[in-house]
Design a binder for these strands. Sequence first.
DNA 1: CTCCTATAGTCACCCAAGTTGACCATAGGA
DNA 2: TCCTATGGTCAACTTGGGTGACTATAGGAG
Lengths: 151, 151
Amino acid sequence: MAKVPLARLFAMSSYVLVSRLHERLEAEGFRELRPAFAFVLLASRDGPLTGNDIARFMDMTKQAASKLVDAMEQANYLVRKPHPEDARAKLLHISAKGKRVLEAAERIYVELEAEWARVIGAARVSALRRDLIEVLEATHGGKLPPIRPAW
Amino acid sequence: MAKVPLARLFAMSSYVLVSRLHERLEAEGFRELRPAFAFVLLASRDGPLTGNDIARFMDMTKQAASKLVDAMEQANYLVRKPHPEDARAKLLHISAKGKRVLEAAERIYVELEAEWARVIGAARVSALRRDLIEVLEATHGGKLPPIRPAW
DNA sequence: CTCCTATAGTCACCCAAGTTGACCATAGGA
DNA sequence: TCCTATGGTCAACTTGGGTGACTATAGGAG
């Protein structure tokens, strides 16, 4: 029996965690919420992004990013505002509702990781995060690579 | 700066590895190859599966699995044969071409994991696999959970 | 044996979320 | 003042899933 490829384990792991996250968010009343939303909100936590920023870190076309932002704005998670220094651009500000999901998502991720810690121990969970960050940054010029809704 | 959620790291990791795999398979002449193909072939390595088996471990409807198999058969990676004991079912046998991609995919995954080992060391790569298998099995009744093309 | 229900598979149609290509407005340097 | 690059959007299309309806066979209850 050959080793299970890491790629497969990662696909399973992310699928499992994202599914659990969305089950719980749904249970807390956050509906019409696509999986990608949480990642966009997490990314815009530290200040507003532009549509192009989103296209880049989601590794999608700017058209697709624009549609994603449409959906997020319509569901009241983001607000498009004019960019103060560039009349072409728009800044995507997280809304109050957006902040609430974001907090819920972070809390639920912490809970899910705590469940993992009960199985393999907190040290090994930390090691997973540390090792993945290290290897991903090392192979992508010191920064984390883009994330994708699909492969 | 809060911790990067593991879910995000897993999504990035699987995206990166699967993308690299397909770049290299493409370079070796395997075209018209969807990401899901490699997982189906790996799963059918130890003997033919039925369409329902595929639907189950890919966590998709049997209709979608049927279309996936259509595509794989059309691209000559699988062959549908009648089931010897159940006239309703068909067994999906891996073809010669299928075996070749499978070997290529396994070899490339080994190479990619070796690149990771050069960054974080072989021990920590092994630890990743061990820990993920342990936690995934523990939370899914002793078996690995299904894999999904998207989340 | 005869039903009756469960299961394997497929067909037709639909939908979500991406892509490509064309386009407009503004930025910003030569 | 152009001329090119960039941020964003609209429209049309593609892909890969889902849903619902259906057929054929399996397999147990009576």
